[in-house]
């Protein structure tokens, strides 16, 4: 990797000067926005990883009582997968300059995301109806907290998604929203992977 090659160099040597004087551009071969999103995703990953570590640690204590996963969570998972696929379809549309595909992909992706959020609310209501209540059960507390944190990240993504849709609606060229659409798709894939990991974790615990 360029970064590790660079930090092994000896800047005080003449021979290194010749190489370094011609050096131009970033250390990582990608646009700044894409790099920033990847770093952000890494930070979010740390947040959720630490939460899961805390979950695992808390499981070891005597009062831990597993909770069932309502069936609707499986449906929500399918909706989130659909949302991610739609976003990727939108990216393909933007790359091939197919405006209708881009618009449809974004709209389906956004709609599925909203449906997912509504579904997650239903999960909470169902668990409440089954007689579970968060404070009495740490497993449920974690489920609610992680679900809410994941939902907040989807809402954040929807803000960027909404800006992109509005720009398209105002008639901007498809190629001008290519980068944003790609970033949205990448973020959605990440949120899907994250939810998949959490979901598996909930099921096996």
């Amino acid at each position: 990797m360029e970064f590790f090659r660079e930090i092994r160099s000896k800047p005080w040597l003449e021979s290194q000067d010749v190489i370094d004087n011609a050096r131009f551009g970033g250390s990582i071969a990608m646009p700044s926005t894409r790099l920033a999103l990847r770093i952000f995703v890494a930070v979010v990953g740390v947040v959720f990883s630490l939460s899961v570590v805390a979950y695992a640690d808390r499981m070891l204590l005597a009062d831990w009582k597993p909770v069932p996963e309502p069936t609707i969570m499986w449906l929500n998972l399918i909706i989130l997968i659909a949302s991610s696929v739609a976003m990727q379809w939108a990216v393909v549309g933007a790359r091939r300059d197919r405006r209708s595909q881009l618009e449809a992909g974004l709209l389906i992706g956004g709609a599925c995301s909203l449906a997912f959020l509504a579904g997650q609310l239903l999960v909470v209501r169902q668990l409440d109806a089954l007689g579970y209540f968060a404070p009495t059960n740490p497993a449920l507390s974690f489920l609610y907290m992680l679900t809410a944190m994941h939902a907040v990240h989807i809402l954040g993504g929807l803000v960027v998604w909404a800006r992109t849709v509005i720009r398209l609606w105002r008639g901007i060229a498809a190629e001008k929203v290519l980068m944003t659409t790609e970033l949205c798709a990448f973020y959605w894939h990440f949120l899907l992977a994250l939810w998949l990991a959490l979901f598996v974790w909930f099921v096996i615990t």
């Binding site: 660079e6 370094d20 131009f24 250390s27 990582i28």
Partner: peptide, 11 residues
């Protein structure tokens, strides 16, 4: 990482 000027290597 990305916005250094020409010749400004990490080292």
């Amino acid at each position: 990482l990305q916005a250094r000027t020409r010749g400004m290597t990490l080292m």
